[in-house]
Simulated scan of single mutants.
Amino acid sequence: MSTIDIRAAALHIDAKTLSSTDGLERDLSKFLEGLDNFAESTHLKIVSKRVVAPLTSESELERTLKTLYERAESQGINYVGIPLGHWDPSTLYEALLTYPRLFLSVEYGPGSESDILKVFRVFSESSYMLATRFAVSFGQRVQTPYFPATQSKENGVSLSLLYVEQFKKGALLESLLERLKEMQRQAEASWDSFLGVDLSISPWMERSVASLVEEISGITFTLPGTIAAIRELNRRIEYLASHVKTTGFNEVMLPLAEDNRLKELARIGQLRFSHLLNYASYCVAGLDMVVIPDTSEDTVLLGLLRDLWDIHLLKRRPLGMRLILAPAEDGSDIDLGMFGKTPVLSPLR
């Protein structure tokens, strides 16, 4: 298996293109044709193909779904991301329930807490799995292939990577940089408008970021030294980002449901909810794919929203949150479909 895979290739569509049927069809065709050329020239595995919409109001959502989602699905696109401006909980629920490849996001602002809480409650009472395709953004959503907290600000193509192995002991950063530069050259040859790579180090199950942090630190994840190792990895990302074209978050990511080592540590009580919230302060991209009991009180959820907002203000960078309220107790496992069984954490610990 290659130690670099393209986790996502995303086509970003602007409002003008979205309003033109011919323009949309043209851009989708060019994207897919370029993707074939890119895969052939780089010999890299493409894990998913995605399309990102521009900021969309609630009144525009149905039209956007009819034009963008249906055409994208017919072309073999795996996922569609739509960032919402004005919205209500029932609209979110119905859209996610109807369109299984759809991801939605909303932006938090002081005063929006009650509406966001309603969304979580609607999901938990009806279908908690919908929450895996919904994110709250703290700060303006960035243009990234990572879903759901993304938006399209200009037409073009972005890429994200699965490349944990490239940061392990013995791996040479300069060698990785040369591979990334060559990838950029091939991307620019494949698409007229290449927006860049989101260099975030993200996990997928056995390709664990938590295990990488442990290798860098020499200690068990969450013990003293963990923050320093996370910061060291972010410094390496910053170095790479200074030499290649980037877009998006470009930070270490710790989504609980997507990292088998994080799951293992949560099951034995080594990793707690408070750890993940705390790490969001140290240049980690957010609190992602965390499952808590649906009996959690609103006051706790309100506190979480306010904490993440202040972490965003402190970092001066956007954060994303995917939180799943599930009918399960702290310490148990719950099945999250393609994410597998995931431990449930108490937000009070």
Results as ranks from 00 to 15, higher is better:
residue 3 T to E: 09
residue 8 A to K: 11
residue 14 D to C: 08
residue 19 S to E: 13
residue 25 E to W: 12
residue 26 R to A: 12
residue 32 L to K: 10
residue 33 E to Y: 15
residue 37 N to T: 14
residue 39 A to F: 05
residue 42 T to H: 04
residue 43 H to K: 15
residue 47 V to G: 01
residue 47 V to K: 13
residue 55 L to I: 08
residue 58 E to L: 11
residue 59 S to H: 12
residue 65 L to Y: 04
residue 66 K to R: 13
residue 67 T to D: 11
residue 69 Y to K: 06
residue 72 A to V: 05
residue 76 G to A: 04
residue 77 I to E: 02
residue 79 Y to N: 10
residue 85 G to S: 14
residue 86 H to I: 15
residue 88 D to L: 09
residue 96 L to S: 04
residue 98 T to E: 12
residue 100 P to S: 12
residue 100 P to K: 13
residue 104 L to S: 02
residue 108 Y to L: 06
residue 110 P to W: 12
residue 116 I to E: 00
residue 122 V to G: 07
residue 124 S to V: 03
residue 129 M to E: 14
residue 130 L to P: 01
residue 135 A to Q: 10
residue 139 G to I: 03
residue 139 G to R: 03
residue 141 R to M: 10
residue 143 Q to V: 08
residue 145 P to I: 01
residue 146 Y to P: 07
residue 148 P to G: 03
residue 150 T to D: 00
residue 153 K to P: 00
residue 156 G to A: 00
residue 160 S to P: 00
residue 165 E to K: 15
residue 167 F to H: 04
residue 174 E to P: 05
residue 174 E to A: 11
residue 178 E to N: 12
residue 179 R to A: 03
residue 185 R to M: 10
residue 186 Q to I: 00
residue 187 A to Y: 04
residue 193 S to V: 15
residue 198 D to M: 01
residue 199 L to W: 01
residue 204 W to G: 00
residue 206 E to K: 15
residue 213 V to C: 01
residue 214 E to D: 02
residue 215 E to M: 06
residue 226 T to Y: 00
residue 232 E to T: 11
residue 238 E to M: 13
residue 242 S to E: 01
residue 252 V to G: 12
residue 261 R to S: 02
residue 262 L to M: 08
residue 268 I to W: 11
residue 268 I to M: 12
residue 271 L to P: 04
residue 272 R to A: 08
residue 273 F to N: 01
residue 276 L to E: 05
residue 279 Y to H: 09
residue 289 M to R: 15
residue 293 P to V: 09
residue 295 T to G: 06
residue 305 L to F: 11
residue 309 W to H: 10
residue 319 L to K: 08
residue 326 A to I: 01
residue 327 P to I: 06
residue 327 P to S: 06
residue 328 A to Q: 02
residue 328 A to T: 08
residue 332 S to Y: 06
residue 333 D to A: 00
residue 335 D to Y: 13
residue 339 F to Y: 13
residue 348 L to Q: 07
